[in-house]
């Protein structure tokens, strides 16, 4: 646990010491602020509908791009610079290294999503009554989604020799993950049952909308994110390990 915390602290500090992270944070805050105001205007001042809107459309565009950009350097760059060799010869397990990196990327995203909570606080100060239960669940759901996409980013970073390739692969994977269930839903009459079953199992958006979006904390949906994220970390660890075997 101590070594995990050491890795987590280092990675989080590393993110905040890089200019890219600040740029991404600024873009996210501006993006959320812009869409919140637009939604507020369109809904005629309906605070809860406007805050909820942020987790319907804008969130998914951001999670497709932000986690890949945050995680792209975490393994590929460290492999090249020799830092991964340093970490993997320190008294810390490979899994702890990977979980520490994942937790750092997810925490950064959690900070970025917390702008929605700040908006809720601001509108409350202005006299409105936001639904805090739903708002917090949506935020929590966004964090789970970010964790899953960060795990995908780590896999791609472990697979790639350069950060740019890692980001490209991760963004592509994220888009496929969005599009396959949507496509399967559209082609429900054409596709056979196994294909539909697989599409349902990887439908991230349906699991978010079915639980967190409604303000409910459903353990099955939480489990969905936890299992897929854990699988992602497991694969990233195995890829790093297999690269060591191959040299």
């Amino acid at each position: 646990m101590r070594s995990f915390l050491a890795i987590y602290r280092r990675e989080l500090a590393g993110l905040f010491l890089a200019p890219l992270a600040w740029i991404l944070l600024c873009v996210t805050l501006f993006y959320n602020g812009f869409f919140f105001l637009a939604a507020l205007e369109q809904s005629g001042g309906n605070v809860n509908a406007s805050l909820g809107y942020l987790h319907r459309g804008p969130l998914w565009y951001l999670v497709a791009f932000l986690p890949p950009l945050l995680t792209m350097r975490m393994i590929s760059e460290e492999t090249r610079s020799g830092l991964l060799e340093f970490l993997l010869t320190a008294p810390v397990s490979d899994t702890a290294v990977m979980i520490g990196k994942l937790a750092a990327a997810t925490s950064f995203m959690a900070i970025a999503w917390s702008s929605v909570l700040v908006f809720g606080l601001v509108v409350q100060l202005l006299g409105a009554t936001p639904d805090w239960g739903q708002l917090c669940m949506e935020w929590l759901g966004a964090v789970f989604v970010s964790g899953l996409f960060s795990a995908i980013g780590l896999i791609c970073s472990a697979l790639s020799g350069t950060p740019l390739l890692a980001a490209f692969l991760a963004i592509l994977s994220n888009l496929v993950l969005f599009m396959v269930p949507t496509g399967a839903r559209m082609a429900r009459g054409v596709l056979h049952e196994p294909a539909l079953w697989i599409a349902d199992r990887i439908d991230v958006r349906a699991h978010f909308d079915g639980s967190f979006q409604t303000g409910a904390l459903d353990s099955s949906h939480v489990l969905f994110f936890v299992v897929w994220t854990a699988l992602g970390v497991f694969l990233a660890v195995r890829i790093v390990e297999s690269r060591r075997w191959m040299g």
Binding site: A13, G14, L17, A18, S81, G82, L83, E85, F86, T89
Partner: peptide
């Protein structure tokens, strides 16, 4: 038990 200094000195340059 080990202290290891690889040939490419691994340091976080931003720290």
């Amino acid at each position: 038990k080990l202290g290891y200094l690889p040939e490419a000195v691994p340091l976080y340059r931003e720290h």
